[in-house]
Design a protein around this nucleic acid. Structure first.
Lengths: 135, 135
DNA sequence: CTGTATCCTGCCGGATACTG
DNA sequence: CAGTATCCGGCAGGATACAG
């Protein structure tokens, strides 16, 4: 927990050995892969069904080849996505979630659906916030 | 989504009027505030209790004043965080979650705790991935 | 204490071209 | 189709100084 910490015990936070609130912790990196700009959308897309590279690219609107490639590599490395290349011609590669990937994506979709469903409230709050500023 | 779309009906995706998978959609922005580098950690920190600016700064290890300030403004504007300034001297400002903020933060913490708890698996997967590459 | 204002750098990420 | 390689501009975000 930073410089205020003198021993291994914290002030009540950081109970987990992988406490994401701590700066140098691998879970922070994984969480950023998962919640990052493209990671979350990629996991969400794969939750419904396995997809091929370009299918994924179309589904995740706006992602570039480069970023999709990077994102998939990171997720594969973290054990959330499975890559299956078929030695056909033309080449075909399928991506799907691992068991852990499905669990993570499930939580993520809970979050996404909540936010989508409450957007009217959010938009309303924004309107009020902005109105209170211009005066 | 996108150019393949000719009418208002989709191919089964994007049922919500705020489908986050679509590029131009306000929910994407909000989701990025929530899942962004500091947004998620900030919401997570505030879930346990209301906090003051510098308490928050210490809790969210590594955040700079500037980014914390920006993050809080974005979350306040989206109606997830409530800012209460007391006209005391020295000044004191408390931040806490709104009802909607609590719901969002709850889902986020589910995700965080899942990831933290499964880090051994993630680390293991990384080890295998890296080992398979160096040859 | 609670922030803004400014400067500056790194790297995120888009465009393009190329390979198998 | 499924990607890598390279270039490069913009902006996220850190450091610092300053204000109320």
């Amino acid at each position: 927990m930073g410089e205020a910490e003198t021993n291994g015990v914290t002030d009540g936070y950081g109970v987990s050995p992988f406490d994401v609130f701590s700066r140098q912790c691998p879970s922070r990196g994984t969480l950023e892969h998962v919640t990052g700009r493209w990671g979350g959308l990629t996991l969400g897309a794969l939750f419904e069904s396995g997809l091929r590279f370009n299918e994924l690219r179309r589904r995740v609107d706006g992602v570039s080849e480069k970023m999709l490639s990077q994102t998939l590599h990171a997720l594969e490395r973290d054990g959330l996505v499975l890559r299956e290349a078929r030695p056909t011609n033309p080449p075909r590669v399928d991506y799907e979630l691992t068991g852990l990937g499905r669990e993570v994506a499930g939580r993520l979709l809970d979050l996404i659906q909540l936010v989508e469903g409450r957007m009217p409230e959010v938009l309303d709050a924004r309107g009020r916030y902005d109105a209170a500023r211009e005066a």
